[in-house]
Computed example of a mutant assay.
Amino acid sequence: MEYKSRPFVSAIVPVFNDSEHLKICLEALEKQTYPKELYEIIVVDNGSSDREKVQSIIARFRQAILTDESIPGSYAARNKGISLAKGEVIAFTDADCIPAPNWIEKGVNNLLKVPNCGQVVGKVDLFFKNPDRPTAIELYESITAFPQEKLLKEYKGGATANVFTFKEVIDRVGAFDASLKSNGDLEWGARVFAKGYVQIYADDVCVAHPARYSLAQLYKRTIRLAAGSYQRQCKNVSSRIQKQKLFLDCLWRNMIPPLFFVFNAFRDSRLQGLNQKIQVSLIMFYVRYVSAWELCRLQLGATSARE
């Protein structure tokens, strides 16, 4: 299919109880260098308790439309956005992201410049609540969260905080797996790769994302990612014995002390002083063992968390 040099773009933004960040995200999307008549913003509310506030925010932005998805989960919400999208190009970001002014322009340019491109995975820059006094959680996030280039290389996908694709690619490979609460972006990317499309990482396609700063926030993220990764891997096994083996393997990998991580943390120049290096290392132990506990919960029949 031949695309115009400036195709119409549909930017899809799921939101759940985060109207404060959504407003900032939409302000950034309103200031894009891409022609305003060539893009729309589809906000998908995923059952927010402050839905009326979300609606009042949307009303301030001419290019934004609001729709709802009652099925819990960001991938179900993104699928709803896809079903309404008018664009040849689909751009994904999150309500707590702040796209750079040239985000759409650079995303489209990267899609168009590579023959048979099926996915552009962009850069996610983390920032701290108080840059002068980052918490240990923020420091941990700054060296572990959203490793987009690594995710693309190792898993053939990237976090939907910053992804561009063509609508026809989605039509061919299918939408996101709405049963997954996390890792659905990697599962979808693997399907794009399997269909023979080219996938590229582009560090000039940028969004900013706040680092999680509290233990409670990190806990929620950890159990969601642990469940998503495990459930994504379970999709590739069929027998009960294989699933049991996968569970034990994932559990064992989380129970092993993260000594290699600790070694790298002590060598990481982004961590200043012995105190920061020790704190970040201890947080990695916490993440590993919380992940192991979540796997045990799922194995006993618990439901994965949505956030």
Rank of each mutant, 00 (worst) to 15 (best):
T144C: 14
L152E: 00
R172P: 01
A136L: 04
F166L: 14
E141L: 09
Y155Q: 14
S179V: 00
A178K: 11
P147E: 14
I143S: 05
F164I: 11
L126C: 04
G158F: 03
V163F: 14
F146S: 09
V192L: 08
F164V: 13
F166G: 05
K167S: 15
K167Q: 07
P134S: 06
F176Y: 15
I170Q: 08
K195H: 11
E154T: 07
K195T: 01
G174M: 09
P147T: 11
A190W: 02
N162I: 12
K156C: 12
G189C: 03
Q148Y: 14
D132I: 00
P131G: 02
E168Q: 10
T165P: 09
G196D: 00
K195A: 07
E154D: 12
E168M: 02
L126V: 03
E149K: 15
K195F: 13
G158E: 07
R172E: 14
S142A: 11
D171A: 12
K181V: 13
K129H: 07
K167A: 13
G174D: 11
G157L: 08
K167L: 08
D171R: 08
G189R: 05
T135R: 01
V163R: 12
P131V: 02
L151W: 10
D177N: 15
K156N: 15
Y197N: 05
V198M: 08
F176I: 03
K195V: 01
W188M: 12
G184I: 07
L151K: 01
G174Y: 06
A178H: 08
I170E: 09
D125C: 00
K129G: 04
G157S: 10
D132T: 01
I143R: 06
E141R: 10
F127H: 07
K167W: 01
T144W: 12
S142N: 11
A190G: 00
D185I: 10
E154M: 05
P147K: 15
I137E: 11
V169S: 01
A159G: 15
G184K: 03
Y197C: 08
D125N: 07
F166V: 05
A175V: 09
A136P: 08
N162R: 11
V198S: 08
A161V: 13
E141Y: 10
R191A: 03
G174P: 05
A159M: 11
G189N: 07
K181W: 10
F164Y: 14
D177W: 09
A161T: 15
W188H: 12
V163I: 15
V192E: 05
L139D: 10
V169Q: 02
E187D: 10
A136G: 12
V173M: 04
I137A: 11
E141M: 15
